[in-house]
Design a protein around this nucleic acid. Structure first.
Lengths: 149, 149
DNA sequence: ATCGCTGCAAAAATTTTGCAGGTAA
DNA sequence: TTACCTGCAAAATTTTTGCAGCGAT
């Protein structure tokens, strides 16, 4: 059960920014680099911690993440602990997938398949809502934690 | 598509508290009352706003909500806006259900069925995780907002 | 009488905003 | 040059913690 997506090329990401006349700056490249090299969704503070001190202000990461989210380049997740997490979107389908989070050690497993695509249609049909999307995350106790009570 | 659960009797909730030697106080009764009368998950501030001023401190609501969550009497939701929402759990099965949130006007629709119960088994079998649960919410544009661009 | 609960105050943690200067295009 | 972007500082939100006193059992 490896991670669900291949690394996106940095050039490609730059191009997406350029297309919306957004500038390619040092901080942004570094933020994108951290995102590219993260196997799981990362918090703002984690992004901050993963770059050499002084490379980029914390506030800039907040602002960039908003921008990237608005551009559909990044997806926001919430694992129920009140901290936002972000993951680079890849592929044309958006690389839609879900996570399985261990409630004891916070280990994260990426689930490759999406179970819920048909559900959206059913929900839409019944409710009259359009452009229905969903957020689905799983929680449980991982094998390692099961062994250590 | 009405709401998925019947109102729980206050006495029943009190009993649950008593069983764990938690005290039945004025603020707690008022908090439970707000929860009982809420058709959708409510934020801490909403609970606060829905009781006569001075009836209960905001901090007490935070603390009570933690307690109730820990006791399995209340469930926490996150609709992606960075604010926690809470709903009373009812029934033996926990009244498991999902929500459909309009991304324009924040209207909430309660979905009566749970689509995802079997998914938990599949996820558990594949990953080796145990006690797998899930959180699933849907987002879309409601009929009213569709009519007003 | 005991243990738990509450309010108030203060702190912590996360996220947003204002502004003056700097930089990519 | 002209938008856009950044860092710093400050503020706004949301949530947590300490403590002394009150209250349910």
């Amino acid at each position: 059960m490896g991670h669900a997506h291949a690394k996106r090329r940095l050039v490609e990401l730059m191009e997406q920014l350029r297309a919306k006349s957004r500038k390619i700056t040092g901080p942004r490249q570094k933020i994108l680099d951290v995102l590219r090299n993260s196997r799981h969704p990362v918090t703002i503070k984690e992004v901050f911690a993963r770059m050499p001190k002084g490379d980029c202000d914390l506030v800039t990461i907040y602002r960039s993440m908003h921008l990237l989210e608005g551009m559909g380049m990044v997806k926001r997740f919430d694992f129920g602990d009140g901290v936002a997490r972000f993951e680079l979107i890849d592929g044309l389908d958006g690389g839609h997938h879900h996570h399985l989070i261990c409630t004891r050690c916070d280990r994260i497993v990426e689930l490759e398949d999406c179970f819920a695509q048909e559900m959206e249609k059913a929900v839409s049909a019944r409710s009259g809502f359009q452009s229905v999307t969903h957020k689905l995350e799983f929680f449980g106790v991982c094998p390692i934690c099961q062994a250590t009570p």
